[in-house]
């Protein structure tokens, strides 16, 4: 028999209450489901340099604009070394052409043939390009490069211009070419003896 079992219940409860009161003076156990109060509040102004994402509706696009012609000048200075003239035949991803090739034996995935949203172009160029100096382009320059790349793919005329209103309205040829994961599309079988060999 332990000493605790011999104590009257009231005394035990009293002791528990006392220990709870004592612990409240020094530290408190954390209850599950309660916020811990860690972390520091942060506001939009503090976050401005990080909060650069553009969503598929164009929310987040900054003020500014850029033309195809201006984009070509930037491209031929900052992009052409990796992506090649006209967005083809570079060592980096091909950016233009390939429309109509996706259902063939030799699909060519480019901005024009594959990308479903023009907003993605702005978002990606702004955050990750040029490769040797990411996040160095101004909003106007990013609009311009985006305009030039869309022009190379026949999606914007030579005198075209992009801004926050017009960019999300560009209809990409492969906009409806994606479907949400519908697997399982392949079902394996567990044969053990005298199976049809295959790999």
């Amino acid at each position: 028999m332990s000493m605790f079992e011999r104590k009257p219940l009231a005394a035990l409860l009293g002791a528990l209450a006392l220990s709870a009161a004592l612990s409240a003076c020094h530290s408190q156990p954390v209850r599950n489901g309660q916020p811990l109060g860690l972390g520091t509040p942060v506001d939009a102004a503090q976050l401005a340099a990080w909060d650069i994402d553009i969503d598929a509706d164009g929310r987040g696009l900054p003020p500014g604009s850029g033309t195809v012609a201006a984009g070509q000048r930037i491209y031929e200075t900052r992009c052409i070394a990796c992506h090649g003239a006209g967005g083809q035949n570079g060592i980096a991803d091909r950016l233009a052409g390939g429309q109509g090739s996706l259902a063939t034996k030799a699909p060519v995935r480019t901005v024009g043939s594959f990308w479903p949203y023009a907003t993605t172009l702005f978002d990606y160029v702004r955050r990750a390009m040029p490769f040797d100096s990411p996040q160095s382009l101004t909003p106007d320059e990013v609009y311009a490069v985006s305009a030039y790349l869309l022009h190379l793919n026949g999606l914007l005329p030579a005198d075209g211009r992009l801004d926050a209103a017009s960019l999300p309205r560009v209809v990409m040829p492969n906009r409806d070419g994606f479907k949400v994961d519908d697997r399982p599309d392949v079902v394996g079988t567990r044969c053990l003896k005298d199976c049809t060999p295959g790999s």
């Binding site: 994402d53 991803d93 699909p107 479903p116 993605t120 990606y124 479907k179």
Partner: peptide, 25 residues
């Protein structure tokens, strides 16, 4: 809604013989 970032559209999507692609796989 998903942002449709480059890494979930241009890449990491699975092109099928009919020319459509599986996304968010």
């Amino acid at each position: 809604a998903p942002w449709q970032s480059r890494q979930e559209t241009s890449k990491y999507t699975d092109l099928l013989p009919d020319g459509t692609s599986r996304q968010f796989s």
